[in-house]
Design a protein around this nucleic acid. Sequence first.
DNA 1: ATAATATGGTGAT
DNA 2: TCACCCTATTATC
Length: 250
Amino acid sequence: MPEGHTVHRLARRIGADGIGHPARACSPQGRFAEGAAAIDGRVLEETQAVGKHLLMRFEGDTTVHVHLGLFGKFRRRRATTPPRGAVRLRLETRRAPWDLSGPTACALIDPAELDELRGRIGPDPLRATDEPARALDRIGRSKRAIGALLLDQSVIAGIGNVYRAEILHALGIDPRRPGGETTPAERDAIWATARRMLEDGEKTGRIVTVDGDRRLAVYKASECASCAGAISSESMANRTVYWCPICQSG
DNA sequence: ATAATATGGTGAT
DNA sequence: TCACCCTATTATC
C-alpha cells in the first residue's frame, strides 16, 4: 500500500524502533547481501521519507535508500518470527525486526546521490518545511492534465493513484483539465487537501476519505460517494484515473 | 497449477 | 506508449 503516507509512516516507526542504537542487517533472499553487510552493526542515526523514497542513515554517512514500488512491503515482525518469503532486507532494530520484500529499489547511497535524489523530487506535502510554490507554479503553467501532474513525482511528491483521484474529487476538479486552467485558489487547495489527506493516512495507515462503510469517494468505485452518479475512468499517465463527471465537471 | 491483480517507476522506442 | 522489473494474495481452472 505504498503512497507517500505509507513511506512517511515507515520512516517514523522504524526510527522510533531503532534510532540511536546499533542495528543488525542481513539479506535472507541474498539480493542485498553486500549492502546489508556494510551496515550490519552500525548505529541507525536518522530515518526520513522524501516523497515515496525511504532513507535510513547509518553511522558513517551511509544511507540505505528504499523505494517500495507497487509491490514492496516493509513489515514489522516479532523478534521470534523468522523471515518468510523473499526478504531482501531484514533490519533488526533495537525494538523489533523489520522485513523488506519486493522493493523497486534497495541500495546504499552516498551524500552526493542523496542530493541528486532530492533534486529530482518535487515538494512533498508531508514534509513540514517544503514550500508548495515550486509545484503549484509548475502546475499553473502546464498544458498537461492535472491528473497527470499530480502523479509526476518531480512536480509534487508522495501522491499516488488513490490520492490523485480522491484529492481531485474532493475539490470538484476534472482530472483531464489542464493544470494551466486551474485557478490559484484551486492550486492552493490542491496542496492543502493533499497535505490533509496524506497526514491522515500517515497517522492511521489507511486511506479513508469518506465516512461510513465505504472508505473512498471515487477510486475504483462504480458510484460516486457524494452524488451516487456513475463513475468515469480512463487511463492517464499509465494508470487508471477515476472521477465523477457530475461532481467534477469542467 | 496458473492467472489476475495491486496505492510505482524506469528506460527504450 | 510500451515493456519490464519487483512480490504476495486471491481467484479460477
